[in-house]
Design a protein around this nucleic acid. Sequence first.
DNA 1: TATTTTATTGCGAATATGTTGCAATAATAC
DNA 2: GTATTATTGCAACATATTCGCAATAAAATA
Lengths: 125, 125
Amino acid sequence: MNRRNTPTKEAVLNLLMNSRKALSQDAIERQLDIEINRATIYRVLNRFCEDGIVHKIVAEDGKQYFAICKKCENPQEVIQHHFHFRCLSCDTIECLQVPVECSVPNGYEVQNANCVLTGTCNDCS
Amino acid sequence: MNRRNTPTKEAVLNLLMNSRKALSQDAIERQLDIEINRATIYRVLNRFCEDGIVHKIVAEDGKQYFAICKKCENPQEVIQHHFHFRCLSCDTIECLQVPVECSVPNGYEVQNANCVLTGTCNDCS
DNA sequence: TATTTTATTGCGAATATGTTGCAATAATAC
DNA sequence: GTATTATTGCAACATATTCGCAATAAAATA
């Protein structure tokens, strides 16, 4: 299944790359200049996830948020699981440069992590 | 708004107390002997959350799961934010006795944490 | 005990998020 | 330029959660 370049993919990717935040489907739809169908946005985002370009966070509100994968100060570094911060005041989600280090009990095997802290961010405090 | 004791509340609370896992609304509905309306279960659970008897976890599947608050070896100890583990094999969520310790950047204030690790639990590995 | 107050419940409908099938479109390979 | 098939838009679907409202039933009161 070869990928094709389309205006849609490009627009979504640009938006994510220029955003300091993780974005939900509806935020993306709102912020885009061009009009893109809801289902298409989800499909584009899920494809980005499959390709490892983007990662998905599920917040306390049960919604999916998407963020570009390499945004740390050290872009070469392989992205590992990190904490996310959701500001209740400005209602945004961002990646923290804090890796999730958690010792699980014996016999447990961690494949993925979805960690979101909620509160007030620096801009809003 | 005073609380009243009802068979419904009691049944849900007993179920949660006897369960080693965090339960979703539909799991609760399935496991209950008596029949309770969906909306009612949600309302009971949300009231428990308000009262601090139960805490809510939102998993990667976007669903809400509920667990009794004091289940650690040290029941007197005030419950702090802890990790949860979701086993993809047996599809259950449980509280880990691992506190979430995360140093957030200056100016950030953490009010809540929703941390779920996914993978294979001890029973299934 | 009988009556009143109002928290709780059940029902149906509404809302929201995310996915899927299908036909039409368009990017890429030839 | 033509063929192949990934991508898109649309509508419909699935599921989770909430809400309004009338009926019920705990708890308080007389």
